[in-house]
Design a protein around this nucleic acid. Sequence first.
DNA 1: GTCCCCGTAATGCTGCCGCAATCTTCGCGG
DNA 2: CCGCGAAGATTGCGGCAGCATTACGGGGAC
Lengths: 223, 223
Amino acid sequence: MRLLLIEDERELADALSGALSKHGIVTDHTTHLADAFELTRQNSYDAILLDRRLPDGEGLTFIPMLRRTGTDTPVIVLTARNEPLERVEGLDVGADDYLGKPFLVDELMARLRAVLRRPPSLTELQITVGRMVIDPLHLSVTVESIPLDLPRRELLVLAALAKRKDKTVLRSTLEAAVYNYEEEIQSNALDAHISRLRKRLLDAGAGIAIHNIRGVGYLLKEE
Amino acid sequence: MRLLLIEDERELADALSGALSKHGIVTDHTTHLADAFELTRQNSYDAILLDRRLPDGEGLTFIPMLRRTGTDTPVIVLTARNEPLERVEGLDVGADDYLGKPFLVDELMARLRAVLRRPPSLTELQITVGRMVIDPLHLSVTVESIPLDLPRRELLVLAALAKRKDKTVLRSTLEAAVYNYEEEIQSNALDAHISRLRKRLLDAGAGIAIHNIRGVGYLLKEE
DNA sequence: GTCCCCGTAATGCTGCCGCAATCTTCGCGG
DNA sequence: CCGCGAAGATTGCGGCAGCATTACGGGGAC
C-alpha cells in the first residue's frame, strides 16, 4: 500500500512515515501542494494524508483540485484545526475523513482501513434527502427551496447524518461531529438534539426520518 | 466588494484606497509579495491589483504562484512598465488585464467591472429579492425602480447577503466583506449595521427579511 | 456650522442547549 | 406472553451567550 503524505512539519512527517512503514505502508512525502499535485499525476496512491496549514496554501483547496481531475483517491485531513465547523468544512469539500492533531497512529490506521473499505464515494457538495437539500458548505438547509434555519448543534447533527444517509452513524461519531475536545458532556444532550431536530424536520415537512439503532447509533433515511 | 492591492508606493496606494472606498470597495493593502500570498490564503478577494516592481521581486511571478493554488481570482496588473512586449508578458502569465501608470481611477473601475463580468456565475450583475433590485457591482439599490441610497457599510452588508440569498452567510464572512485588515472592530458594529439596515429596508418596503442564525451568521430572504 | 455616518457601549431580551426527571420502547429470558 | 432492565424519547427548566436596539459622541464631508 502506498500513501502520499502532505505535511510541512518535518518531524511529524518522519515519525509518521516510520510508523506506517512498520505496517508495510510505503509513504511518499512532500511539504507543498504544488508538488503534491504533480505527484498525484505521476503515481497512483491508495490514500492521501493532508495537512491544512501548508507553506503554499490551505490544504483543503487541494481536494477540489484533485476531484476535478477525476481522482477519487481517499483523502484524510490531519490538522490542528479541529473545531466542529472546521471539520464540517473539511468533509464538505470532499475529504473522506478528518483527524485532529495530536492523534494516535493506531487511530489513523483504523481510519485508514475504514476509508479504504468504503466504496468510492461521490463527492457531493449538496445532499438531497426527501424533500430537503442540505448544503453543508454554506451551512444552509432548504425544504422545497424554502430556507430552514436550524440551531448550530442540530445543523451539525443533521449534516453528519446526511453525509452517510441510509447508513448507521455511530453515536461517538455524532458526538465528535458536534463537540470538540474541551466541550465534554455528561448527559443525554445528543439525544435531546436528535429529538428537537426530529420535531423541526417534521414541522417543516422534510420527508426525512431519523431512526435509532439501539446501542450503536442513528440512521437517516427518507420516509 | 473587496480587493487586494499589492503596491509599494505608499502615496499611490493610499490615494487609490481612498478613491476606491468612494465606490464602496474595501481594499487590503500590502507592499510585499510574501505578505500578499499570506493574505490571499486567509481571505477571499474579488480581484487583485498588482504592481510589477516590488521590493521582494517581480510582481508577475505572483500570478503563477496564485494560479497553482487553484485560485482564479482576477488579477489586474498596474505598472509603469507599459511597453507592448511587457504587456504581452503580463497577460501571458495569466493576468486578466494590464493597465499602465499613470491611469485614471475611472478607467480602473471600468476595467474592474469588465473583468468581474467575465464569469457570469460568480458575479451576477443584478440580484432581485422581494421588491428590491441590487447591483453589487455599481452598488446601487432600487425598490420598485426608485433608488434607495444606503450608507456605505450597510450597502456592503446588504450586497454580501444578497449575493448568497436564501443561504447562510457566516458572521466572519460578513465582517470580511465590510472591514479590511487595519479596520479592526471590537464591538458589535456589525450588529448595529444589521439593525439599522433592517429598519431602513422596512421603511422602504423592500419586502426583504434578514434572519439571524444563532451562532452561525445571517440569512437574507424574501418576506 | 450642520448633517449624518458609524463605532462604542449599555440595556434588555431571545432562545440555544446542557441537564435531569419522567415516560416509552426495545430486546431478551423464561 | 410477560416481566424486567437498559437504552432512548421527550419535555420543562434555568443559565447564559449571543443578538437587537438605541442613545451618544467623535469625526469627516460639504
